[in-house]
């Protein structure tokens, strides 16, 4: 059993190359729950939460590069919250102040939960994930990284170094359904982002399929009906839009919700986000 504290990304590359069975510990909010309940066998652990490079973010040009150990707390307020408002909205719905002080964006991606609240936003924005190991760096789309319920395509010696998130000009929304306002895992969630310059709308859904997914049909349909100059949408298309959002979901029944309720609420979230961003044409 060994416990190691990585001090830089180079260190981390070496430590993983040396023994790739070592497990990474970031904020611990998923990791330690599994350890406490004996659902995770640990023989070697590398703490990555003191690696300065991973705790930084920077705004360059038309995107933000967010280190994997940036916490929700940092995302939910300050400059990041105005650069990527939907990501901040999502961060603010996660857990509690204690959880947001510790939990990281890299941990949320690596855990790859269907209910991971960062994921729909990153999908809708078309974020790219930078993955690193001693042998080099590669870049994946979010849906290439996340391969199923709590599974990802990282090789054993790789780690998530950072996430490249486009900064768009246009309103964004993240909405989530759950039994109370704090400390809830999403029953359903939806992210909607717009890019006024490219006349683009991105929509992604959480907790309604094995992994968060894009709602491509609904995106195509609605983008053809939006009046981008006036930021309006005709009332006649809302119902069809809501149906397309519902149809892109493939939910299951579980202890948190029935699939019928998930299907219903995801449509409601779609309409609500749309009408927060666009006015109804009259």
């Amino acid at each position: 059993m060994d416990f190691l504290i990585a001090s830089s990304t180079e260190d981390l590359c070496e430590l993983l190359a040396e023994d790739s069975t070592r497990q990474l510990l970031a904020g611990g909010t998923d990791f330690m729950v599994e350890v406490n309940f004996r659902h995770r066998d640990i023989s070697g652990v590398i703490a990555i939460d003191r690696i300065e490079e991973l705790k930084q973010w920077r705004h360059d040009g038309d995107s933000v590069l967010i280190g994997s150990c940036v916490t929700y707390r940092e995302i939910e307020r300050g400059p990041l919250s105005t650069l990527i408002p939907a990501l901040a909205q999502s961060a603010r719905t996660i857990g509690s102040p204690q959880i947001r002080n510790a939990g990281t964006i890299g941990g949320n991606l690596a855990t790859a939960s269907p209910a991971g609240d960062m994921i729909p936003v990153l999908l809708a924005l078309g974020a790219l994930v930078n993955i690193r190991s001693k042998s080099g760096v590669r870049q994946l789309q979010v849906d290439e990284l996340i391969t199923g319920v709590k599974t990802n395509s990282l090789h054993e010696d790789e780690f998530i170094e950072s996430v490249r998130v486009p900064v768009l000009r246009g309103p964004q929304e993240f909405l989530k359904v759950g039994p109370r306002n704090a400390m809830v895992i999403s029953v359903t969630s939806l992210a909607m982002v717009t890019d006024i310059d490219r006349e683009y709308i991105g929509i992604a859904l959480g907790s309604v399929s094995a992994s968060p997914c894009r709602s491509s049909e609904a995106e195509h349909f609605i983008s053809e009906n939006i009046d981008w100059n006036n930021m309006t949408v005709p009332s006649g298309v809302i119902e069809n839009f809501e149906r397309l959002v519902r149809e892109s979901a493939n939910p299951i029944d579980d202890h948190r919700s029935s699939s019928a309720y998930r299907t219903h609420t995801i449509g409601v979230l779609g309409r609500r986000a749309l009408l927060r961003i666009f006015r109804l044409e009259n």
Partner: peptide, 27 residues
Amino acid sequence: CEQGECGSCSVMMDDVLVCSCLVLAAN
């Protein structure tokens, strides 16, 4: 709870409020 839900284990670590049940002691 040992799962970050109840906050009854809250402590300050380097001036940051955290659930001590979610901190690996060695770290």
